[in-house]
Every structure is written in C-alpha cells, then in structure tokens.
Design a protein around this nucleic acid. Structure first.
Length: 280
DNA sequence: AGATCTACCTGGTTGC
DNA sequence: TGCAACCAGGTAGATC
C-alpha cells in the first residue's frame, strides 16, 4: 500500500537512477492503466509523445509519483502514476523480460527498462501537459503535504470538524498522502482514539498529532517505506518500516507501552488497530 | 457535513 | 485436496 513514505522512496530512487535518461520506446501492455481524458494525453499518442524525451526528474505529491519528461519539440510532460494498492515502478536491467503483471514498459536509450507493474490494476498512469496538471480534478483537490505544514496550520485543518479523526486523516482533500498504516501509527503515537470527533480534540493534542505524524513519516522514509505484501522500491527491494509498527497489523497483540491487548475495529470503513488504554 | 455502502481487482489465507 | 468465502486497501460515486 504505497502511501507517502513509499511513494517518496520510489521517487527518490527513480530520480537518482533516471534523471538524464532518454526514453526510446513505450509499450502499453494493458491499456486500462493508462487513462485518457481530463487533459491527459490520449493513449494512442503516448508512445509518440514520449519517444526521444529525456527524464528531468522524479518527484512526489501526495501518493502520486511524477516523472517530468521533456522533448524539444513538445516541451514538458508530467507522467503521473498512482500506484493505489499494488502498483510498482522498477528500473530493470537491459534484456529484462516483462513479468506477469507488468502493464507498461519504458525502454531507455541506454538499454535499461522501467516497468510499471500492478497485480490488481487499480493503479493508473497518465501523461499531462503542464497546463493540464492543475486541471486534473484529483490533483487540484488534494490537501496540503503533511511535512510542509506548521503545527498551527495542521491543527486548523481539523478545527470545528465533527468527523472522526481517522476519517479526516485518510481524506486526501483534508491532508495528502496518509493511508491506513500511517493514520493508525500516528494516532497511536499521539494518544488519540481513531473515533474521536475532531472538534473534541484540543489544539494542543492536534499539534501533538502533527508532531507524531511528521515523526512517523520521516522514520518510515528513512526505512525505505513499509512492505506488507506488494510494495518494493525502484530497485525491487522491500522496505523495513513494517518491523517498527506499533499498532498496524498487531490486533490482539500487546500494546508496547501499557501491555493492554490491541483492539481491532472498523473506523471510516477501514480496518483499524488501536490501544484502548493509550488512545482516548 | 458526514457516514456507510458498493464497485473496481486479484492473490493469499481461512474454513469446511 | 478442492473449492468457496473472505480479506486487503485508495478512490469514486451513490445514498441516507
């Protein structure tokens, strides 16, 4: 489940490996992962647009991985990937054969290949010209980046809202990049119950959540992300942060702080694990 | 505004 | 062993 730390890890890996590389050919093996519409470059035009383009950089916004590509004739193009559940982007050696769930293959001039794979096909890939990026509805509606917010600005996001804390953390319009893992982990570290109504949480505790969230995201990025089942980085390697989970996936096990059995319930439609004693 | 449900998709796990 | 049921989860859209 690539969330902010996983996508950030992939972006850093791709930026280091691909900046300056030239795309020679693009093969879309499964057209369903390459949507058109909303200003996206139509599928049929994609290969022609990308052939001969050079990768300028790879970066991340929310859970979206963006490859900036440029070709003198038609300028800058943003290639946006949303990995959803099982998407992966890996740099492969020359001659590597597509695997069972490889959906798009980018052949580079130096022989290497970039694979976009996705078992469940929830992921997507779209090419947008710069003027169309802000017109992509999903992109335009994204909330702020959690690592770029002041504590006060973070607390403001929750002020006066009656929804459950976890529901707001998962809402990409409120704050971007948080998924099930980091919602649970940050709420535990902040001592806030997932079901707590936002307007019942003091400003001080909201700022504490901001600190907890920034801390867990930074630790996860430093560990190259969390690998539960599918996630790997751009080299195909697993992350290590799953070894540091305090609540996610630990229902029934003991709280590392107070030894109370961790509880599992459904909050905001998602499986949620929390400590009934530490989180109020 | 917010909660809940369904759909999308497929591999892995569990239960009979 | 075989097979059905269920689960994981990000997002969109419908409904109450």
């Amino acid at each position: 489940m690539p969330e902010l730390p996983e996508v950030e890890t992939i972006a850093r890996g791709l930026d280091a490996d691909l900046a300056g590389a030239e795309v020679r050919a693009v093969a879309v093996l499964d057209a369903r992962v390459a949507p058109s519409g909303e200003g996206a470059v139509p599928k049929a035009e994609l290969p022609a647009m990308l052939e001969g383009a050079r990768v300028l950089r790879a970066w991340r916004r929310a859970k979206v991985l963006v490859l900036d590509l440029a070709r003198p004739e038609n300028g800058l193009l943003h290639l946006c990937f949303h990995l959803r559940m099982t998407g992966r982007l890996t740099v492969e050696q020359p001659g590597a054969a597509p695997r069972a769930h490889t959906r798009v293959v980018f052949d580079l001039a130096d022989g290497r290949r970039l694979f976009f794979g996705d078992v469940r096909r929830f992921g997507s890939c779209r090419a947008l010209r710069p003027r169309d990026l802000p017109r992509w509805k999903f992109w335009a509606a994204l909330g702020p980046e959690p690592l770029e917010l002041s504590p006060a600005a973070f607390a403001d996001l929750f002020a006066g809202r009656r929804a459950q804390m976890k529901s707001l953390l998962l809402d990409q319009h409120v704050i971007a990049g948080i998924g099930n893992i980091y919602a649970d982990e940050s709420l535990f570290r902040a001592g806030i119950a997932p079901r707590a109504r936002a307007d019942s949480v003091s400003r001080e505790r909201l700022e504490g959540l901001h600190a907890a969230l920034a801390e867990v995201l930074r630790e996860a990025i430093a560990a190259n992300g969390s690998s539960i089942s599918d996630y790997v980085d751009s080299h195909g390697d697993a992350g290590a942060f799953q070894n540091d989970f305090r609540v996610y996936g630990r229902a029934g096990e003991l709280c590392r702080v107070c030894q109370t059995p961790l509880v599992r319930s459904t909050v905001a439609g998602r499986t949620t694990v929390w400590c009934p004693r530490c989180q109020r």
